[in-house]
Design a protein around this nucleic acid. Structure first.
Lengths: 204, 204, 204, 204
DNA sequence: AATGAATGAGTCTTCATTCAT
DNA sequence: GATGAATGAAGACTCATTCAT
């Protein structure tokens, strides 16, 4: 038997604990906001003592930074998929909308995103992280739209930037829409979202 | 006899004081966020004692609610202008974009909006207010788009709703864009924003 | 009547409050030590809420610094008295021993001094303050011993420094003696202290 | 059969472990103070886990008590040396000053002593220990000064006590001097210390 | 009307100590 | 013996809110 549990210090366990905290914190932040959620509540949600959390994270701030980092990685992987996927770019991106709307209309994820944005407005480190992530995303998008298979690969830098900004504004805006109008559903959104997005992916 | 002074409870003065507080609070919230700004700072900015503020507002929460109410009224007046303005609707609305982008790229206003959104995620009363305001805005927009001078007045309710949601997403999304990419400027944004918006104002 | 109380903001009251805190803190530090005494206990002793103390002192550390400052001023005034007093220097200083022993055998004062010394070993700001005070005291002593009326005014700088150090060591050492042997009394101490001190005030 | 290992509870090893902890703790207390040094740091310095320390010491307090005990033993041995040494007592003791100043101007040792004194002010058990040690030291000194080879063997009990107190005050005071004036050096101190001490070892 | 002194509940964080392994 | 994960009771400090004046 290749059982090797009972190792005194199990690094996998530590990682699991860390994730527990991250999950619990995300959950609490969603419900109460970053400032509204106390370490006491987070620790209870995570199923461990408040003090123990500090074995994994230096501070409450470090927790939200870790959460943001996780999010960044998700964004990275999404763009990677776009790049790797063969076929017509317009189609790929418009199909991608489906997933994007799913993600941004997830009321839980949205609340967390909003929390991060609001925190960015007053916490420079968080702002920096978010901007780095966004910068990366814009760069990836730009590369995609400048590739051979793009219909707008000949656009001026400014025109391209503008389109990317508006595309991102639309996508991010959906998060706000879900907050302001929780009744709106994905299918309805896509009805107009797709044409609006398409117009940005082809020459005017 | 001494004139004018010592009149007890001058309602005009009271209103002026209230506005002072509202202004000061909005200013502080912009700079520090709702939780970051303390009553001490607000009172100093407002030029009155912390205790006195409680003669006008029941709590800190009541202050942000009042600020939101003010915002709502501004939104109302904007739609009123659209309604009253003669001429082609597409042109009116696209021209309106100019002002909207101005407003939403004002980094200070944006920070305040974000603060309100985040607060909505954890404060039901604030959420309710914001949603009511948004509901009203959507209704006004719907009426506008259903009026005789609209090119899409024959759209189905769902199609119309979808377009309104996406338009609003775009506009609100700009606030987030400004937070994530402070370098972006109004002119650049309008380059792609106008075509994307136009496509939503005419039949596909 | 020249009553002018009822002034809204009374600066004298504030000072009184500050002193209350200082007294209470000194008391608590004596009994429990700097780290052993909590703000809760200090505030209770001072007869005010813990939060209110922070209207007078930025931190717990600022409190002990203030206490040290008070002590420094007392030291200053003592040396001033020595300087101002006419007559034979040896007599003046030996008579001064009486007061010094009183002060240093006050078990309460001693405990506080010890607390400050210990804190100095780990808190640079406190150490700096204490050293500055000590440096001033040594300078004053040097001036006294170099004045015309001194019997050892012709000593070399090093010899003078040595004597001052030893005199101060004796005086400060009494604080420790009182801690280690609380039974020892002033009269007994003076029996040997005076001759030992005299030998340092005259040429060998 | 495997030799020597797995012997349960090797008392020599245990003692070595205990000493390790004592050394590490003394080191940490010197650098950070009793309250400033955490068990985590002590355990790391000692090269063992925090939990394991509790197999040797019931508490952090027990550690400092053990350290004090060690110190006491050192004091004992010093006095033993004085007793055993043949020759003139005044000479022996004045020569002993050399070592004493060395010890008390060791800035690290001094910090630890101060820490113990301060702790004594708030921890009765520590105070008791320190006093017991001091009492023993005074007794030894008294015996020395009452022995045949002493020049002051005919002094009254009170006079003798006084002299001992002042001698000890001087020696202990040096620790404080080093804290307040780190620049002072041994040679300079001895210049005045020796004559002051001598006067206490001979009839006035 | 207006002040600001005063409160105290609540915050994040630290750390001596315990215990399952 | 030995570990270090885990605890939880403090700790200093903040801040919205109240109230005597």
């Amino acid at each position: 038997m290749k059982e090797k549990s009972k190792r005194q210090t199990d690094p996998a366990l530590a990682q699991a604990r860390r994730d527990q905290v991250l999950c619990a914190a995300a959950d609490c932040f969603r419900r109460k906001g970053y400032h509204g959620a106390g370490m006491a509540e987070i620790s209870k949600t995570a199923g461990m003592s408040a003090g123990h959390i500090y074995n994994f994270f230096a501070s409450k701030e470090a927790i939200i930074e870790s959460i943001i980092e996780q999010d960044m990685e998700k964004v990275f992987s999404i763009f990677q998929e776009y790049e790797d996927q063969p076929g017509d770019l317009v189609t790929i991106l418009l199909d991608g909308l489906d997933y994007a709307v799913d993600h941004h209309t997830d009321v839980n994820q949205g609340a967390l995103d909003l929390e991060m944005f609001a925190e960015a407005a007053r916490n420079d480190k968080v702002a920096e992280q978010l901007r780095k992530s966004d910068c990366y995303a814009r760069e990836k998008m730009r590369n995609l739209l400048l590739s051979e298979r793009s219909l707008i690969k000949d656009l001026s830098a400014t025109e391209l930037e503008s389109r990317i900004e508006v595309m991102f504004a639309m996508i991010n805006g959906i998060t706000l829409r879900k907050t302001l109008n929780p009744h709106v559903d994905k299918a309805t959104l896509l009805l107009a979202l797709r044409p609006a997005m398409r117009v940005l992916l082809v020459p005017f």
